[in-house]
Design a protein around this nucleic acid. Structure first.
Lengths: 194, 194
DNA sequence: TTTACTGTACCGTCTGGACGGTATTGTCAA
DNA sequence: TTGACAATACCGTCCAGACGGTACAGTAAA
């Protein structure tokens, strides 16, 4: 479904995505630091040789795991903020929406990122740069940059709790926060337009 | 310094703490998932046998790592909110202060927690329960529970970025947020008193 | 013929942890 | 006061198993 766009031609096989999904599952189930290639291959229904054909080293797999997560976000963001769309959103509104979806996903959908971090913290560098770019965009679009920053951090807190699968927030609390942020974003949008 | 209080008698040796600190360092340098007992022992200046004397299994070490982090917080919190103190703080104010200190600590001081998570996500269960208790306390003390919840999440976001050593925020941004939160907490405190 | 694998066999390294030993300190009866 | 014993706090070695990665022969579809 989500095209990674690494290759120009459309791939007939979907082994890469199967492997990526399997890696996230294994990471979730065995702990981020106990992700073995054998386990991933088995889970993906692929031979170890096949896995290493797609990802020549474990490091390449980890990097792809992070990139996979990023691409997913980038696609959503582009779609939601498309000015040609019927009702284009601000970046902040789109970010709020994406964070909601993130929390509603099956638990540990992003465990792959944790596995990458467990192997080598530097694998998170692209994620770090991505977050910084996003924050800059949110601040530059907003009427009140500090407010944008605070909203960003609230979502960061919410999603990080989810990433660690710490069910600290109830659904009601989550919803309350999300609604509050949406109001904030809406207000900021209208002020900016006025 | 910080007494864990596990033993009634004062320990003459401080091997435990040396090992805990070493584990955090190794975790930070080699990646949370690549923490080996040999490396920890070497870093701590202790033989492997000595390490295993203090922590009979790797799991015990990991649990201690999480507990160490928690105890540190608990001590600070108790001190800051002590009603007998000269200027007792609300739980929210203390939490803000602790989060500031957390960010000012040498980078990766809490990497031990990540190492524990990498080994087995369930090691974070105490941390999860701790956060839930903290949030409940913040909400119950506050005049505006939603505001307390949002403040909690802002700090959660800030500290999680720090935990991953993602330098997304500049020092000015961090300070701006912290000041804003402190104002919020102060206002809430005064309203509650009135 | 190329692509995209499967399957098996294997290698060198690392790891958790079991185990036996040892030096120091504490306890307590004679 | 001393000698006997025991608990504490380690040290150093060893090992079975797991891991990442290589090599290679085979195969089925496009």
């Amino acid at each position: 479904m989500a095209q990674i766009g690494r290759h120009v031609t459309v791939r007939r096989t979907n082994s890469r995505e199967k492997i990526l999904a399997a890696a996230a599952e294994v990471s979730r189930e065995s702990g981020a630091g106990n992700l073995s290639l054998d386990a991933v291959a088995q889970r993906a229904g692929v031979s170890k040789g096949g896995l290493l054909y797609n990802f020549p080293t474990k490091a390449k797999l980890m990097q792809a795991l992070v990139q996979y997560y990023l691409d997913d976000y980038e696609v959503s963001m582009a779609r939601e903020t498309d000015p040609n769309s019927a009702k284009p959103k601000t970046a902040l509104q789109a970010h709020i929406e994406f964070s909601r979806e993130f929390c509603e996903k099956p638990p540990g959908a992003a465990s792959g990122v944790l596995a990458a971090m467990a192997d080598d913290p530097h694998f998170l560098d692209p994620l770090c740069q991505f977050k910084r770019r996003l924050l800059d965009r949110l601040k530059s679009e907003a009427r009140d940059p500090l407010c944008a920053l605070m909203c960003f951090l609230v979502l960061e807190g919410m999603t990080s709790l989810d990433l660690f699968e710490m069910n600290v927030l109830s659904n009601e609390e989550r919803e309350l926060v999300l609604v509050r942020l949406a109001e904030e974003a809406e207000a900021d949008k209208n002020h900016a337009a006025a």
